[in-house]
Amino acid sequence: MTTESVLEAQAQARPERFADLFAHRRWIRRSQPFQHVYARDVFVPEFYQRLTDDLALIQRERPELFGQVASNYSAAGARLADLRDTSLAVFSSREWHDLVAGIAGVTATGDVEGSVHHHTPGAPYGWPHNDLNPAWFPGEPPGPDEVRLPGGGVDTKSGARASGVVARESIRAVAVLFYFGNPGWQPGDGGETALYDHIAEGEKLPELTLVPPLDNSLILFEVTPRTWHTFAGGNTKDRNSVVMWVHRTKDETIERWGGDRIVYW
């Protein structure tokens, strides 16, 4: 495994107030089982406490925001697009978009998709997937200081919308999983994220790397046809995370990997 610090290069590009949210710049790039970035103690304690306080408030006072993420997935999710009046808006900000795109080396569109995921205890193991999926966003492409979130009468997964509504298809380019609201996690508590070095049809699942859901930590990676991962299940306690993506154009995705590698819903 090779490692290197990756956050320092982005330090000068961020507004000072945004930069002050981070506890340090020692985000580590790992090469196995695929290229990804891992960081502990991401945010300063004061801001991390705001995130966990807002999570608890949302879960207590706005439970209607949480819906099933997918028919075959055990998490309930609250969309970042519905949480922009909380500290969780940091994950749908242009500064965060540009930071994660820069770390991954991706030219991103300004489109941001994501939600807060909550797994109740005993959630089942997920299925390996690579996140190379499309998403549809309303309106024209955002400007250089803007982001575009799902909604606006456009179905995110299918692009379905009323006549006359403008929508664009883009493809997930960088995935971020930020773990929070999981105090006291210990080995054996389950709920890790499993990373695979490959998935081949007809073969047994390969050896995997388990990323623990430690509070105030994250994993970040460019989405490619081989970024296979899943929720490892078996959590003995509630498990919370932010799962979000920035996107690239469909044309760039096709140029790099071919249109047949895009996984449609």
Rank of each mutant, 00 (worst) to 15 (best):
V116G: 07
V116N: 07
H117C: 06
T120P: 05
T120A: 14
P121L: 05
G122M: 10
G122W: 11
P124F: 11
P124V: 12
Y125F: 15
G126R: 10
W127V: 10
W127L: 11
N133G: 10
P134M: 13
P134G: 15
F137D: 14
G139D: 11
G139Q: 11
P142I: 15
G143H: 13
G143L: 14
D145E: 15
D145K: 14
E146F: 15
E146I: 15
E146L: 15
V147M: 11
V147D: 06
R148T: 15
P150Q: 12
G153F: 10
G153Q: 12
T156N: 12
K157G: 13
R161P: 09
R161W: 08
V165H: 09
V165I: 14
V165F: 09
V166G: 08
V166P: 10
A167W: 13
E169A: 08
E169H: 09
S170V: 14
S170Y: 11
I171N: 04
R172H: 09
A173W: 10
V174Q: 07
V174K: 08
A175C: 10
A175E: 07
V176T: 10
F180Y: 02
F180P: 02
G184R: 02
G184L: 04
W185I: 05
Q186D: 07
Q186H: 08
P187H: 09
G188W: 10
D189Y: 08
G190I: 05
E192P: 01
E192S: 06
E192Q: 06
T193Y: 02
T193H: 03
A194K: 03
A194G: 05
L195T: 02
L195G: 02
D197G: 05
I199E: 04
E201W: 00
G202D: 05
G202Q: 02
G202T: 00
K204W: 11
L205K: 08
L205I: 07
E207T: 06
L208I: 05
L208H: 09
L210Q: 06
V211P: 03
P213E: 00
L214Q: 04
N216K: 00
L218I: 02
I219F: 00
F221Y: 11
E222F: 00
V223K: 01
V223Y: 03
T224W: 01
